Amino acid sequence: MSRAKARAALMQELENALRRSSAQGVIFGQTVANTVGISGSDLECLDFLNLEGRVTAGRLAEMTGLTTGAITGVIDRLEKAGLVRRERDPADRRKVFIAIVPENLARIGRFYEHMQRGMVKLWESYSDAELKLLLEFATKGYETMLAATEELKSMVEAPRPKPAKKSKRS
C-alpha cells in the first residue's frame, strides 16, 4: 500500500473512532439528561457553565454557537430545574451572570464518576508529550466544531428566496 493510501486509511480509521466516541458521548449525555429530567442540549450547556464558571448569557451563546434567544430558553429551563441561577453584577446591575448551583449540580456529577475514573486510567497510560498532543487535538477539534456550527447556522438561517407569484391570466 502506498504511503498516501496508508495515511488515508489511517485518517478514515481515526474519523470512524471519533464518530463512535462522539455518538456514544451523546447517548451517554442523553441518558444522564433523561435521568435528571432535562434535555440533552440543556445538559451540554450546563457542562459549558461547569467548565467556564459564572458567565453572561451572551458568553454562553458564544461558547456553544447557539443564538442568544436559544440560550435564554436553556437558562430558563436550567433555572426552573434548580441547576443554575441568575446573578446581577453588583458593579453594573444591567449585567446578569449565569451561575451553577453547586449543591444541585452534585446530583448530576455522580453519574459521571465511573466514566471519569475510566478516563483518568486511560490518560495515565499516555506520556506527558502524548497528553499535550491530545489536548491540542481536542482544543482544535472544539474550535473546528464551533466554526462548523456557525457555518451550519448561516446555511440554515439564510433567507430563502420567495416563490414567484403565479400570474392570473384572464
Rank of each mutant, 00 (worst) to 15 (best):
I38K: 01
L18R: 08
A4G: 07
T35I: 01
L49E: 05
G40C: 02
M1R: 04
T35G: 10
K5N: 11
I27S: 05
F28L: 14
S39Y: 10
S2A: 01
S39T: 14
E44M: 12
V26H: 02
I38R: 00
L49C: 02
Q30W: 07
A33N: 03
S39H: 13
L14K: 13
E52K: 05
G25Q: 12
N34C: 06
I38P: 00
A6I: 14
L18C: 08
G25D: 09
E52S: 08
L51W: 11
R3P: 08
S2N: 00
R7G: 10
S41I: 06
I38L: 00
L14A: 15
G29Q: 13
E44P: 07
D47H: 04
V26Q: 06
N16P: 01
G37C: 03
L18E: 10
A33S: 06
L10S: 02
S21N: 15
R7P: 11
G53D: 02
E15R: 14
A9Y: 15
L49V: 00
G40E: 04
R7V: 12
S41C: 09
G37Q: 05
M11V: 15
S21I: 07
F28G: 11
E15M: 14
L10Q: 04
L14Q: 13
L46R: 06
Q12L: 06
G29R: 12
A6V: 13
A6E: 13
G37V: 10
T31V: 05
C45M: 05
Q30N: 10
S2C: 01
V26M: 05
F28C: 10
E13F: 14
Q24A: 09
D42L: 04
N50M: 06
N50C: 07
A9W: 15
R3K: 08
I38S: 03
S39V: 07
T35F: 15
F48A: 06
L18W: 13
Q24W: 04
A8M: 13
Q24V: 05
G37E: 05
D42C: 06
M1F: 15
S39N: 11
L43A: 08
